[in-house]
């Protein structure tokens, strides 16, 4: 089975190569690389990844400029058609700025950049991106961000929790995120944004492989579709 994925690169993305490597290692197919200025995406994509980094130098707000770039209109259309979209770190910020996910990512509560391995719990293993994890499983994935403090109003947070749209939570407070939310899903379940970097935990050489199951889950969902 060939897995047709795309990694979007914005000016200032710096985890696009890691994301492409992870997708290729797990799926066996090299992802297509798409530039932010492209108005169209390749046809028949199975998966779209928005990588980490500092798109447009984080000008105005992290992810704000990238969310308005030409390719994002195509990504929003694809997401609305049901194509799985994963946004990691800056990619998560782009997803909230583009309106595909609720809430916003604010400056870390402790002001400092946080760059270390953190423990997460899998809050919902029934999603396209998490089915290969056990419910409540504790995993270790690195974070590296300055603006990872997830904010949404109480009503939105209640709705996210009630609908099983919190995919991952930090096992401890990392950045001040509301209810320790580390990753959220859209209502349809085909868009996931998360601050931790699963693409950096694919094989033992990277210090662990707890991120691998996320990509395997997406592959599995495609195979059984």
């Amino acid at each position: 089975m060939s897995f047709r994925s795309a990694v979007i690169t914005f000016p200032g993305s710096n985890c696009d190569r890691d994301m492409a490597d992870a997708l290729e290692k797990v799926s066996g197919s090299a992802p297509l690389r798409v530039w932010h200025g492209d108005a169209d995406l390749p046809d028949n994509l199975d998966f779209i990844a928005l990588p980490g980094g500092f798109s447009y130098g984080d000008y105005l707000r992290s992810g704000a400029m990238a969310a308005r770039s030409p390719v994002m209109r195509a990504v929003v259309d694809a997401a609305n058609r049901g194509v799985p979209v994963l946004g990691v770190c800056n990619g998560f910020q782009v997803l909230t700025e583009s309106g595909l996910l609720p809430g916003a990512l604010m400056r870390n509560a402790g002001i400092t950049f946080v760059c270390r391995d953190v423990a997460l719990t899998v809050d919902n293993n029934q999603s396209l991106f998490t089915s290969r994890y056990a419910q409540g499983q504790r995993i270790v994935i690195p974070v590296a961000h300055h603006d990872g403090n997830y904010f949404a109003d109480a009503e939105t947070l209640d709705r996210l929790e009630g609908e099983g749209r919190v995919a991952f939570r930090y096992a401890e407070d990392v950045n001040g995120s509301a209810r320790q939310i580390a990753g959220v899903l859209n209502a349809a379940g085909n868009v996931l944004g998360m601050m931790p970097h699963p693409e950096r935990m694919i094989e033992a050489e990277q210090g662990g492989s707890d991120g691998r199951a996320l990509f395997e889950s997406a592959l599995n969902a495609l195979a059984s579709a």
Binding site: R61, A64, G103, A104, F151
Partner: peptide
């Protein structure tokens, strides 16, 4: 739509 993020 751009200069402010109306969520926050």
């Amino acid at each position: 739509k751009l200069l402010a993020n109306m969520v926050i």
